[in-house]
Design a protein around this nucleic acid. Sequence first.
DNA 1: ACCACCTGTAACTTTAATGGTTACAAAACG
DNA 2: CGTTTTGTAACCATTAAAGTTACAGGTGGT
Lengths: 136, 136
Amino acid sequence: MINTRFSVAVHILSLLASEPERRLSSSYMAASVNTNPVVIRRISGMLKQAGLLQTKPGVSGALITKAPADITLLEIYRAVQQDDPLFSTHSSPNPDCPVGRNIQSTLDESFKRAQNAMEAELQKQSLADVTSHLFV
Amino acid sequence: MINTRFSVAVHILSLLASEPERRLSSSYMAASVNTNPVVIRRISGMLKQAGLLQTKPGVSGALITKAPADITLLEIYRAVQQDDPLFSTHSSPNPDCPVGRNIQSTLDESFKRAQNAMEAELQKQSLADVTSHLFV
DNA sequence: ACCACCTGTAACTTTAATGGTTACAAAACG
DNA sequence: CGTTTTGTAACCATTAAAGTTACAGGTGGT
């Protein structure tokens, strides 16, 4: 199961998108997510590296850097998951067995196709699609 | 990251598919996977419940129950992952915040779409597709 | 210039999931 | 009958994630 970083990252950006003029501090966002400010800063750091938000040390709060319609969920996913594989394969199968010898490379291909399909769907959804459901 | 049960399950079924006449014991398969026989029996149990293989208590070995071309990777995935969600959402966001109040149900929908896309791709691949790459 | 406050980050603790292991009852077969 | 195997339960070890504490460094208000 994929960790909650992705979920929290979308939450953070949704908050920033809802008040694009206002700098929201990590404490403020932590109260909405219901976690510790350090957790927010950790994930904000990854989003900053991906160019999705701006912060300055010492200056309170973060600002979103793009229009929500121009941020795909895939960008957010990649920002927090880097290139972690979605599926893991068991390690060191028996090389003396034809199945054991070739299973890993074969599975890697199948798994990559599945992951690509998932990511293609995330590419189709934008942050604006998410936020449009939040305020109704 | 998805656990290695799926990977091991495909390995098990590939072994059984490679010798459909022969009953392979959990110890034999454990040697190919490079793990403990109990791990194999644990996963075999799930595959049995899904109708993908047969075993009898006391009788050594397992047999595959279908032609590899008729087993999709999705069937195997479902057999070992049940209906675990692919993505997790952070728990108890703040209900006093419009974002916190609605983020979970919104994310659930987005995440389900992504998971569906992944599963649709697994549906397209059969065990035969995998085994055809193993013996070359 | 000072101070209160914030970010960024490292380090540590806690918790949960996974895989490996031990143990043993129940069943089958020679 | 006794050896072997499956099916499970129970337990241990390892790992990853999230939460927490701590603190250096920067900023802006006073």
